[in-house]
C-alpha cells in the first residue's frame, strides 16, 4: 500500500471502526460517509456516526481465484452485509465454517490484516466479518 499510503491513512476511521455518517433529516445511515444525502439533497444534514458492528449477510460468493495479494487466502468468502442500521458494505467473511456462511446469517465485525504483501512495506488493517452463533 506504499504508494497509496495517504489515501489509505485517511480511511483509517472507516476501516478500523466503521466511521460513516447519517442524515439527520431522513435518518438514512451511509457507509462509507457521503458528502450529500441523495434522498434529501439540499435539505440533508449529514452527521458523523459509527456504524453498528453487527449485521447479516445479504448475498455472498466464494472466491477461488483471488486478486494480487490475496492468492494465498483462497478459497475465501466475500459478502454484502447489511448492518443493523441498514447500511450495506462489502467485506471478507473469515473464521466461519462453510455451511454457516449463508444468506441471512448473523455476522460480527472483526479487526484483521487486509493486505500485507510487501515484507518491508506498511501493513493495511481493517474490518472483516465473521458469522456468529
Amino acid at each position: 500500500m506504499d504508494g497509496a499510503l495517504p489515501l489509505i491513512w485517511r480511511k483509517f476511521g472507516e476501516r478500523y471502526d466503521l466511521d460513516g455518517n447519517k442524515c439527520g433529516t431522513c435518518g438514512t445511515a451511509y457507509f462509507p460517509a457521503r458528502a450529500v444525502c441523495p434522498k434529501c439533497r439540499r435539505k440533508g444534514t449529514l452527521v458523523a456516526q459509527k456504524m453498528p458492528k453487527k449485521g447479516k449477510i445479504v448475498t455472498f460468493t466464494e472466491l477461488f481465484a483471488g486478486p494480487a495479494g490475496f492468492e494465498h487466502e483462497t478459497p475465501y468468502f466475500i459478502a454484502i452485509i447489511e448492518l443493523d442500521n441498514k447500511a450495506r458494505l462489502l467485506s471478507q467473511v473469515v473464521d466461519s465454517e462453510k455451511e454457516k456462511v449463508k444468506v441471512g446469517a448473523r455476522v460480527e465485525k472483526v479487526f484483521r490484516k487486509i493486505s500485507d504483501i510487501d515484507p518491508e512495506g506498511p501493513i493495511a488493517y481493517g474490518y472483516k466479518f465473521k458469522v456468529v452463533g
Binding site: H72, E73, V94, V110, F111, I114, Y125
Partner: peptide
C-alpha cells in the same frame, strides 16, 4: 492465529 492475524489484530480484539 489465522493468516490475517498478528499481534496488533489480537491486541485490538482483546482491547475492545
Amino acid at each position: 492465529g489465522s493468516l490475517d492475524e498478528d499481534a496488533a489484530t489480537i491486541a485490538v480484539e482483546a482491547a475492545r
